[in-house]
């Protein structure tokens, strides 16, 4: 259902944009022979991060269509893998796209549908989650999940001189979460005096993070750092610490670089928040931009492009602050 509401709004906005574009271009011009029709297939906005994905995708559409009259971008959001597969078919047969940027819900379920699209001559860029058969994609662009776990681990190890008690939150059981978790624990294994007391799933969700943290605080009397592993979850963690009035905790480390978190770091407004690691939904913007510009010139993209994650601290926070994005 969320799809319906979103779709309706997009249709209204899209129709307005299309009309404006037609008027501005005097019509017809946009249908030059070398038109790139780019389809974008992404998950519907169901939480902060996917909300950001949808916003950045529409941002890319607005900017790029303005800059390139012979580019037409169609953004579709899906609330599950089967719906995404259906939309993919529609994009190919009805909209007649010749390039595709897809953020697949599930690697395995979307591999065949993407393969079908590619066989029809569509240039395919896969974002974030790799397909199980990589021959179905022309390019792969992703955030760096290993760095997402490694950077906070290295930061904590250095800042606390290899001695700290850590509790951690995890997201939803997925390969993505496992990669981050293994990178995090992998680094910290080299420090015998750093103890990871426990790690529990809080589903990338503020409420669950609040509950799990409350229970961690009951269970462990001496905690130095909480790795919240996500900025939404960090929000719940901070509330739980505030309620318990605990003073032993020195730092909460989130993840992804949401605008409120980056602002907090920039202003130094919370004594528990000092740093974050970037994993911005902006990568969908980069992927659309790179694909569109390469296709307009007739170029190909490198087979794999990893968008680096970096440590956000007070010094560089400005570069990661996008006040207009919902995330």
């Amino acid at each position: 259902m969320s799809e319906v509401a979103r779709y309706t709004r997009r249709v209204v906005l899209g129709a307005g944009l299309a009309m404006a574009a037609t008027v501005a271009l005097g019509g017809g011009f946009a249908l030059a022979a070398d038109t790139v029709k780019l389809g974008v297939s992404i998950p519907a906005a169901t939480h902060g991060f996917t909300g950001g994905i949808v916003w950045w995708a529409n941002q890319a559409k607005a900017e790029l269509e303005k800059a390139h009259p012979n580019l037409k971008i169609t953004v579709k959001t899906a609330s599950g893998a089967p719906e995404q597969a259906n939309q993919l078919q529609d994009l190919v047969t009805v909209t007649g796209i010749n390039s595709l940027v897809i953020f697949p819900f599930e690697s395995a379920a979307l591999t065949q549908p993407v393969m079908q699209a590619k066989k029809k001559g569509v240039y395919v860029t896969v974002v974030d989650r790799g397909l199980t058969d990589t021959s179905a994609q022309d390019a792969y662009i992703a955030g760096d999940n290993t760095a997402f776990g490694r950077i906070p681990a290295e930061y904590i190890a250095k800042k606390y001189n290899g001695k700290a008690n850590i509790v951690a939150l995890r997201g939803i059981p997925t390969t993505l979460d496992n990669e981050r978790w293994e990178a995090f624990t992998g680094v910290l294994k080299q420090y015998p005096d750093i103890k990871i007391l426990d790690g529990k799933y809080a589903n990338w969700n503020r409420d669950d993070a609040f509950k799990v943290t409350q229970d961690f605080l009951t269970r462990f009397k001496d905690i130095d750092v909480i790795w919240a592993a996500d900025d939404d979850m960090a929000f719940g963690v901070l509330k739980a610490i505030e309620q318990a009035k605990r003073t032993d905790i020195k730092e909460v480390f989130g993840g992804a670089g949401s605008k409120t978190m980056v602002k907090t770091i920039m202003d130094g407004s919370n004594p528990l928040i000092h740093a974050d690691v970037s994993y911005s939904p902006k990568f969908i913007y980069d992927a659309i931009k790179m694909t569109a510009e390469a296709r307009l010139k007739g170029d190909k993209l490198p087979a794999t492009y990893i968008i680096p994650s970096s440590l956000i601290t007070k010094e560089n926070a400005k570069e990661f602050y996008f006040p207009d994005s919902p995330y």
């Binding site: 259902m1 969320s2 319906v4 906005a45 169901t46 939480h47 902060g48 909300g51 950001g52 919902p326």
Partner: peptide
């Protein structure tokens, strides 16, 4: 209404909070 309520909230929140 399960779908309607949540969709309207998501729309109001622009997918965020």
């Amino acid at each position: 209404t399960l779908g309607i309520f949540r969709a309207v909230l998501t729309w109001l929140a622009d997918g965020g909070a």
